[in-house]
């Protein structure tokens, strides 16, 4: 399976920014600093269970329901 990580990252950005472009950019930066650069993950990226678990925790910490 592939693409789940990209989907999760995009969902976190959408939920946290609520359509606001400034917040979209800030949330992207926050994720990059956490080690999840949205540009390095694609719909073909492998569904790594460890990364998925980490992202679920990041989403919880950021108050986002995935």
């Amino acid at each position: 399976m592939a693409g789940k990580i990209k989907q999760m990252i995009e969902k976190i950005i959408e939920e946290r920014s609520n359509g606001n472009e400034v917040l979209k950019s800030t949330t992207r930066t926050k994720l990059i600093i956490k080690g999840y650069n949205p540009d390095t993950w694609t719909s073909r990226s492998e569904d790594d269970p460890t990364k998925i678990a980490e992202l679920k925790q990041i989403a919880r910490d950021m108050g986002v329901n995935l």
């Binding site: 946290r16 917040l23 800030t26 926050k30 600093i33 956490k34 910490d61 950021m62 108050g63």
Partner: peptide
């Protein structure tokens, strides 16, 4: 900073 960024959108 990481945790503050999680908790708020305020810079």
């Amino acid at each position: 900073m990481d945790r503050l960024g999680d908790l708020t959108d305020v810079t």
